[in-house]
Nucleic acid binder design. Structure first.
Length: 197
DNA sequence: GGTGAGATTATCT
DNA sequence: GATAATCTCACCG
């Protein structure tokens, strides 16, 4: 089932952990792509590494909007990353989706990524947006109603991500310079599809 | 298997 | 003008 807004209107760290094993789905004319979420990072209020830390701007406006909507941004001038807004509206917290295990639409992912290696299709925040065709046009769209959706574990009877249910590793976030010591990254220990172990 | 440089641009100082 | 929640490829060992 599609996760309702109430799922996201909770403690951001709890949501970041609970998103592991959920399904990220993008439905579009070119086809539907989807993958199990196997790695996330939490970005909190009063967190110097969060884009919302210095207040609302045109770029980070989604983070201050309703939970359960997407915050999509461009990084290093060329890659796109997707976050899920969490917690109370106006606070500015979100969860970065860092890696997926590909589930469907894999041929489309291969074309977009230019590789056949299943481990390289979605094993990073910039990779998975390229594989799923997630663009800036999805910024501030609802993940409960729009073309980009998140579905609960068990949405695909008989199928489950590698290493799930299983141990969730909590460790430090990747690629940041501020608050780099906080353990706000989560991934499935048994999955080969995470960005780094 | 690991490290480092370069790509490339929106955003904020 | 510097920075940035990344990726790829070249090069080294």
């Amino acid at each position: 089932m599609i996760l309702p807004p109430a799922f996201y209107e909770r403690d951001t760290v709890a949501v970041a952990g609970d998103l592991l094993g959920c399904l990220l789905v993008h439905r579009e004319a070119a086809g539907t792509t989807m993958g199990w979420i196997v790695e996330t990072e939490a970005y909190l209020r009063d967190d110097p590494a969060a884009h919302s830390f210095r207040g609302e701007t045109a770029r980070n406006r989604a983070m201050f909007g309703p939970a359960g909507h997407a915050y999509v941004y461009r990084i290093y001038g060329l890659h796109t990353c997707v976050n899920i807004v969490t917690g109370q509206e106006g606070v500015g917290e979100a969860v970065l989706v860092r890696a997926l295990e590909p589930v469907a639409g894999i041929e489309l992912m291969r074309e977009r990524r230019g590789t056949d290696d299943p481990l390289a299709l979605c094993s990073g925040p910039g990779k998975l947006t390229q594989a799923l065709g997630i663009t800036m046009s999805l910024d501030r769209t609802s993940l409960s109603e729009g073309p980009l959706q998140v579905r609960s574990p068990g949405s695909l009877p008989g199928r489950r991500p590698e290493g799930w249910p299983g141990e969730v590793v909590q460790t430090t976030r990747v690629g940041i310079t501020k608050a780099a010591d906080l353990p706000l990254r989560f991934y499935l220990r048994g999955s080969r599809y995470v960005s780094r172990r």
